[in-house]
């Protein structure tokens, strides 16, 4: 089994769930950059799902993995059907076969019952007190990555300089123990290459001083990247200083490095249409089930800081979350990727 070598520094992501609008620009940026080859059709290293929801792979939160009391607990290997998607369509039949209206655009490959964003905008509650929000997910580049430890071939490692979880595809044998160990189920299998694959934090971009595509492309200014120990950076301030950004399912024991600013929502309505001022639209218990007990404090801090701004007072948290300049999202990885001549080393 692989051993986890700790890195000197750790890169981390923050997503503000109050600003994410579920536009899928991050997903598409990632897909177009990394998952266009044969064997990657069903892969979405970056996904955005509606919560509450079953997510991708379907019901991944029930599949196990991670650590219990510090002991690795292998979970389930999700099936292709549970990941969903991977759709291709009968474009030729519809557009070029001359069948006219008897043939419509249909899926001819991939899952019949699920997709990476199948339950978009469904959420929970009852009208008019329904609720939902968007949750972007990628590899958490965990500090205690169960996947690294589970690999029988030592194909996975944490980069010593930045903590990204990387895969040596020449060494990977496709055993998929990593995918069983990962409680977030963010590791995919490439049937064409016979190996597993996952988000590598846009490592080649990071090496060149360019932020990952998911962060750089976010039109909502809802995503940040940066080193957790960079006290002046937005990520560190949101996570360490103000504690308004929390990991997802910290109880799974892998110490994930993707953090979320929890969503606020308008108060619910009473049956007569008046505001239920003391009520919760998104139940705090639901937020706790995702982000742990600390989420209450994070929500309180956010509300207090928003109130400060409403009173015209200064608020460092709100200034960071507003992100007046988009370069603030990049944690210093602000080089323009268009300036770089990328070497493909014949790998295509």
């Amino acid at each position: 089994m692989g051993t986890i070598t700790q890195s000197k520094r750790q890169l981390a992501w923050v997503f503000d769930l109050n600003k994410c609008i579920g536009c899928q620009t991050c997903s598409v940026a990632c897909k177009v950059l990394w998952q266009q080859d044969k064997g990657t059709e069903h892969m979405w290293w970056m996904t955005v799902n509606t919560q509450p929801g079953r997510g991708t792979p379907r019901d991944y939160e029930t599949m196990g993995g991670g650590y219990k009391d510090g002991v690795a607990t292998p979970g389930k290997l999700p099936s292709p059907e549970e990941f969903g998607g991977g759709w291709d369509y009968n474009y030729d039949e519809v557009l070029r076969s001359g069948k006219g209206r008897t043939a419509h655009l249909e899926k001819i490959a991939g899952s019949k019952t699920w997709g990476p964003n199948w339950d978009e905008d469904e959420g929970a509650g009852e009208f008019p007190n329904s609720y939902f929000f968007y949750l972007p997910r990628l590899c958490n580049h965990c500090t205690v990555p169960g996947c690294v430890e589970a690999c029988p071939n030592n194909a996975l490692s944490k980069d010593p300089e930045n903590g990204l979880v990387l895969r040596n595809e020449d060494v990977c044998q496709g055993a998929q123990m990593c995918a069983q160990a990962c409680p977030y189920k963010k590791i995919y299998f490439n049937p064409s290459l016979g190996i597993s694959q996952h988000c590598i934090g846009c490592f080649p971009r990071i090496e060149q001083g360019v932020a990952p595509a998911c962060v750089r492309q976010c039109p909502g200014r809802a995503a940040w990247i940066g080193f957790l120990d960079d006290d002046r950076g937005a990520v560190s301030k949101l996570v360490n200083k103000w504690k308004v950004a929390l990991p997802l399912h910290a109880e799974w024991g892998t110490k994930p490095n993707v953090f979320y600013v929890p969503p606020l929502a308008p108060v619910p309505l009473n049956p007569d249409g008046t505001f239920n001022e003391g009520g919760e639209r998104i139940p705090l218990s639901y937020l706790k089930s995702l982000f742990g007990e600390q989420v209450g404090g994070a929500v309180d801090t956010l509300k207090a800081e928003m109130d400060k701004r409403r009173r015209g007072e200064a608020s460092e948290v709100m200034d960071i979350l507003v992100m007046y300049k988009w370069e603030e999202a990049l944690g210093g990885f602000d080089r323009d990727p268009a300036e770089i001549v990328w070497s493909t080393n014949g790998a295509g």
Partner: peptide
């Protein structure tokens, strides 16, 4: 195709 895969695909 890519965008269709980001929702129901129909």
């Amino acid at each position: 195709n890519i965008l269709l895969n980001t929702h129901r695909g129909e």
